[in-house]
Amino acid sequence: MNDEQIKKFFGEHKESIEDRGFEARLLETVKYLPKPKRAGSFSLRDRIVAISAMTGVLLFVLFGGADALVSGIFTTLSAVTIKQLFSPEIIATALFLFVLLFGIGRAAYSD
């Protein structure tokens, strides 16, 4: 059976599909849908998140957040290295930090 015969077979079985209310049902459903997103437009939630993030970065830079962070890390490391590695404060802090990061990660993933 050649290509022409297969084409013929499909041609013979090509049926026209009656509307049977499909278009009306579809357009009726569209009436109740929210307006589609335009390209480059942001929702209110996106805007709030962006503004909060920018404010946070600005405050961090203005109030010397980077210096405070670096010195904080060094202080913590030196405290840990000077024999207080398994003190209850360090263990509790590490545990809470882990739980916090896990929670944030999970929330971000489920979003």
Binding site: F22, R25, L26, T29, V30, L33, P34, P36, K37, R38, A39, G40, S41
Partner: peptide, 18 residues
Amino acid sequence: SDDIAQEAFLKAYLNFSS
């Protein structure tokens, strides 16, 4: 097939920006 066609049209409508 009509359900899937309707779903496709609605997705196209809502995501036309993409």
